[in-house]
Amino acid sequence: MAAHQTNLMTIHQDDIAKLCRLAQIALDDGERAATNADLDKMIQMIDVLQSIDTDGVEPLAHPLDAAQRLRADEITELVDRDRYQASAPAVQDGLYLVPRVL
């Protein structure tokens, strides 16, 4: 994708193709045009952020200033495989099946 330029954003077909590849989403031709237009509008909307002065402001990842709590190293999960696999689309011998990877 092209480097970012403030307030000059329009998204290209190539960009959409890359986003679809990264997100593993396939769009048909009709959807692609509409998505292109939608994303252009989204980007225009979020580009407003560029005008806000954030010099010296630390990013905020969580609204609460808290640190991670740690869990004791204990086996607490008893796995009921059959139950967990009851909604699985394809299972054999306890393995989840997907199309051949290699």
């Binding site: 869990r71 190293d73 204990e74 086996i75 607490t76 999960e77 796995v79 495989r81 967990y84 696999q85 011998d93 306890g94 393995l95 989840y96």
Partner: peptide
């Protein structure tokens, strides 16, 4: 003994998916 982010066992060689919790 347990996984990095869950309480499932890390023991090697168990039957497939018998140590995979939600």
């Amino acid at each position: 003994r347990s996984k990095l982010f869950s309480g499932a066992s890390t023991a090697f060689g168990a039957p497939p998916n018998s140590q995979a919790c939600p």
